[in-house]
Design a binder for these strands. Sequence first.
DNA 1: ATGCTGAAAGTAAGCGGTTACGTTACGGGA
DNA 2: TCCCGTAACGTAACCGCTTACTTTCAGCAT
Lengths: 340, 340
Amino acid sequence: MAVRLKDIARDLGVSVVTVSKVLRGNKDIGDETRRRVLKRMKELNYQPNMLARGLASGKTYTMGLVVPDLVHPFFAEFAKSLSAVLRESSRALIITSSEEDPEIERQEIRTLLHRGIDVLLIASCQSSLRNFYEIGDDRTPYLLFDRNFPHLAAHFVGSNDVLVGEMATNHLIETGRKRIAHIAGQGTSPAFDRLRGYRNAMIDARLPTPDSYVFTGSRLEETGDKVAAEAIKHFLALPEPPDAIFCYNDLTAIGAIEAVLAAGLRVPEDIAIVGCGNMPYNDYLKVPLSSIDHGTSELGRRAGELALDLVNSPEQPPKNILVPPTLVVRASTRPAVQAT
Amino acid sequence: MAVRLKDIARDLGVSVVTVSKVLRGNKDIGDETRRRVLKRMKELNYQPNMLARGLASGKTYTMGLVVPDLVHPFFAEFAKSLSAVLRESSRALIITSSEEDPEIERQEIRTLLHRGIDVLLIASCQSSLRNFYEIGDDRTPYLLFDRNFPHLAAHFVGSNDVLVGEMATNHLIETGRKRIAHIAGQGTSPAFDRLRGYRNAMIDARLPTPDSYVFTGSRLEETGDKVAAEAIKHFLALPEPPDAIFCYNDLTAIGAIEAVLAAGLRVPEDIAIVGCGNMPYNDYLKVPLSSIDHGTSELGRRAGELALDLVNSPEQPPKNILVPPTLVVRASTRPAVQAT
DNA sequence: ATGCTGAAAGTAAGCGGTTACGTTACGGGA
DNA sequence: TCCCGTAACGTAACCGCTTACTTTCAGCAT
């Protein structure tokens, strides 16, 4: 079996408490004793039993992460980056997926809390806040990422999604488009904020945004490509079809490109398209896709740092960490008028 | 704070042990008592403290997963599917990434073992077996997936990669190609087996496979697209360039398509290309990519089931679970001779 | 000499469960 | 009537570690 504190104590003729104190760097121990204990720990390759430590101390050295979908590159990359930060402070990460199902999310949160985690990180797929009151009861500190709840005073790490919407829209405006449409998401703060950013930019540029230029779809993370097909059908049936589309995310943008091409039109000549998320394969698509990059690994890093901070000072006032987005231009938004 | 067995016992005037027995479905309890305990558990919304249970019983109801890269769609999908299986038996999953670094992998394994997990699942990036002797010492059952070690008598869940290579190559042969090349991986069992499958198929078809038709690259999971560019340069410089290429994975195939197109040749007319992994975006590439599908979620499911089985009977003889691959044909391998 | 201080160690209790045995009371077979 | 088996529950110890509180003793001021 594994080496225990007891074994080291016995070997050295000291008490378990003494060894435990050395382990945790307690001042309470003489130099000579400390040295002997540390030496023996190395020799035996001692690793503390985290279950026992967690039970006795309340700290588990474990963080919990709940994402709506592990396969989505954004969440995967976030998890990877977060994981790297936690590894440095030798904490484990329990990752669970809610599959975009509020009931599963609820279940996963409860499981994590009762399993014992120091901090919970979550991109919630809830529309209500019920789950979060439960978390509050358990006094486990938590932070939201990617998706925020305006009326919940919680820590948040994410993009400035209003700015995301503005940047994408302004980019289309700057390349000379006038009739700019938006395929919008639903029910989450990024969806809401990106729409707002889009509206802001259009109003600033004094461009019209008829209601018919905003097509709202749901579950765009998983089925954005399908939804985009409907959206394009809708847009192309308008008396004045758009000459550019800002899509809620890249999957939707990909679907939009496919649908536009299938309709016999050209991207970007007839319709320019910009997405959001800057997925790895954007360069290799039929039309390489312009996109807004969230700085995902930066997000993961910042979230990890905040989480570590919350372990020590759980009661601090809510922080709101926004990582600035960047625009990555590719072929799908080359200027409409090739003035040469 | 959370509800404990003690609270329920007190409320009902029975002992903690009685409640514990009910919790675990022990026969040893009368119907009436059992009913009262269960009722009270529901009322108080009791959830067992996993740390305490783990410490006392040795079972942690937690599995550990080590993957080389969380962002890779294969591992993400595997993790997702595995996670779903474990959720059904209310077990948590600790996911860690080795970043394709043997030393990190070693570290992560040790951390997991000392944290206490019931089963370890790992796609190892080791070339040596050193880590696995360590695991053996801790008597924690483990299973390998995706990447196997021929000389290690361990449980394995993965593709039949020889068959993968044969299927891909045979498909190219059946569509009329004669000069078929392979961009091969390095150092892992899938790389080795797919190469063998390629060779098998070529020999069976009495087609030549000069050494110059096999280009070996490393770290294809992360940089396959770059490596493919070199490979294509190499192939096109041959006196008799190939008319088809079987690529170790989809990322490599994507890079190959890009490079072939950039060289002014057509896919599939001049060079057909088949990949491996059947990534989500294969339909949307410049040339939609034919690929071998591993049945990734099936793999995750089978791995999860085996892992659950190992909890109860850790000492069973090594199982070797191979999920049959399937071919998904897209534009990149349309027949060379459109005989109409 | 007496008492106080602080460094260095130890003692005991407990975290929330589980496990291996006891104990009790009842009923049936001989 | 006696014994024993069994159902139903309880007792005590322990899992490996931490926490809060002693204890011990040297050094120093009074």
